[in-house]
């Protein structure tokens, strides 16, 4: 290592300059000096490269697996602040259920396309439509299937069928997604959570209104399709919400 004979004091300040920690007046003086000092200019460029290189360093796992040693040690190590067992068990149970549940719910929902719901709708017993009544929506699958569906059933059966208008899979999917959202709500930005819940309430209100309308006019194919569509919107939004809680920290 050589020791600089005539030491250039500006060299010592180059890191401050790189880090932007210099007072403006010093910075200007240094910049003035840099214009006339190739040595400092070169050193400055090299320092910048060093910093950039340091930032870009990659971590890698150690060559030897250290886990067995740790596993042995922790098996023998009592906790300093033991966690109360009931909460721990509770978490475990709940989490074991929640994640697979979420995955399952997502699958169910994926399978529960609009098409499935239409079929379910079409199969529920309906009073024969009044002539001409369904014409406006004849193009929708529900209406189309409904026209070929066997004629029905007593008015009581109709009401019962419309009360749970789609199918149990829908209710299960909704319940599971709602549970996933409830479990994961802590992982959402409170504002986003509030917005999602407000929108779910909007849809729930719409579903409620549509349900009551269907109950009052069960033969109305359009009302049933509107209800099914709105229910599908709820699943879409719940799925969105569940994805946000699952994917984002």
């Amino acid at each position: 290592m050589t020791i600089t004979p005539a030491h250039d004091p500006w060299t010592d300040r180059l890191s401050e300059y790189v880090d932007g920690e210099m007072r403006p007046v010093d910075r200007e003086a240094l910049e003035h000096h840099l214009a006339g000092c190739p040595a400092c200019s070169v050193a400055l460029a090299e320092l910048r490269s060093v910093v950039a290189r340091a930032h870009a360093l990659e971590d890698r796992a150690p060559a030897d697996d250290l886990w067995p040693g740790i596993a042995t040690a922790i098996a023998a190590t009592p906790r300093r602040a033991p966690v109360a067992r009931p909460p721990a068990d509770w978490w475990r149970r709940r989490l074991d259920l929640t994640l697979p549940q979420l995955a399952a719910a997502a699958l169910v929902v994926a399978a529960l396309s609009a098409g499935t719901m239409w079929i379910a709708l079409a199969r529920s017993p309906l009073r024969a439509p009044a002539p001409g009544a369904t014409a406006p929506v004849a193009s929708s699958p529900a209406a189309a299937s409904q026209q070929t569906a066997p004629a029905p059933a007593s008015p009581t059966a109709v009401t019962a069928a419309t009360a749970d208008v789609v199918n149990p899979r829908y209710d299960r999917a909704v319940a599971e997604l709602e549970q996933a959202l409830a479990d994961g709500r802590g992982r959402l930005d409170p504002r986003t959570l509030q917005v999602l819940e407000q929108n779910l309430r909007t849809i729930d209100r719409a579903i409620g209104e549509a349900r009551r309308a269907v109950a009052a006019d069960p033969a109305n194919a359009w009302l049933r399709s509107h209800l099914a569509t709105t229910m599908k919107r709820k699943v879409d939004l719940l799925r969105t919400a569940a994805m946000l809680t699952a994917g984002r920290g």
Partner: peptide
């Protein structure tokens, strides 16, 4: 309205945030 009403296009799960 037979076709699925499109869901919201959401960010896919980011592997970086999985940890």
């Amino acid at each position: 309205m037979a076709a699925a009403v499109s869901g919201v296009t959401m960010p896919s799960v980011d592997p970086d945030t999985v940890p």
